[in-house]
């Protein structure tokens, strides 16, 4: 089955991104396809490479980056939600005149159209949120 995943809550405050991660891993292990993971609302904060969680805790962003690398996952951060919350890639930083970018490897910033397209193309769209 082809899954599309929505993550709509931020890391650590909510378990949503952990549950999504576990689901995606399990689905891939069962031979399913995960066409895209779309990060929306505070979920976009999963994609910052500047988070430094305690060493004895899970490293949520690094987990996603590693999983994306292993399975060639498409991790998409919503641009509108990201701009509000200070998530920028170099392109956006240049365009908005900001002095830094903070997107982690394996993530890309794109529009809400990617969420709708995912819903159209996938057999199931599953939201992990509150």
């Amino acid at each position: 089955m082809k899954f599309g995943i929505v993550v709509s809550e931020g890391p650590y405050t909510h378990q949503a991104s952990d549950s999504a991660y576990n689901f995606v891993k399990a689905a891939l292990a069962k031979g399913h396809e995960v066409a895209r993971v779309f990060f929306y609302h505070d979920g976009v904060n999963v994609g910052t490479r500047l988070s430094v969680p305690p060493q004895d805790d899970r490293q949520i962003q690094e987990q996603w980056t590693a999983l994306a690398k292993e399975h060639d996952l498409d991790l998409v951060i919503c641009i509108a939600a990201a701009q509000r919350r200070g998530l920028l890639d170099q392109n956006e930083a240049d365009r908005q005149g900001k002095d830094a970018n903070n997107i982690a490897e394996g993530f890309r910033i794109s529009g809400l159209g990617q969420l709708i397209e995912m819903g159209i193309q996938c057999d199931r769209t599953i939201t992990f949120g509150d």
Partner: peptide
């Protein structure tokens, strides 16, 4: 949530679903 939901609806309208 409500405001960002509406943003999805407006963008999604372009997809003729």
């Amino acid at each position: 949530y409500a405001q960002e939901s509406l943003e999805v609806v407006l963008i999604g309208a372009a997809f003729d679903q």
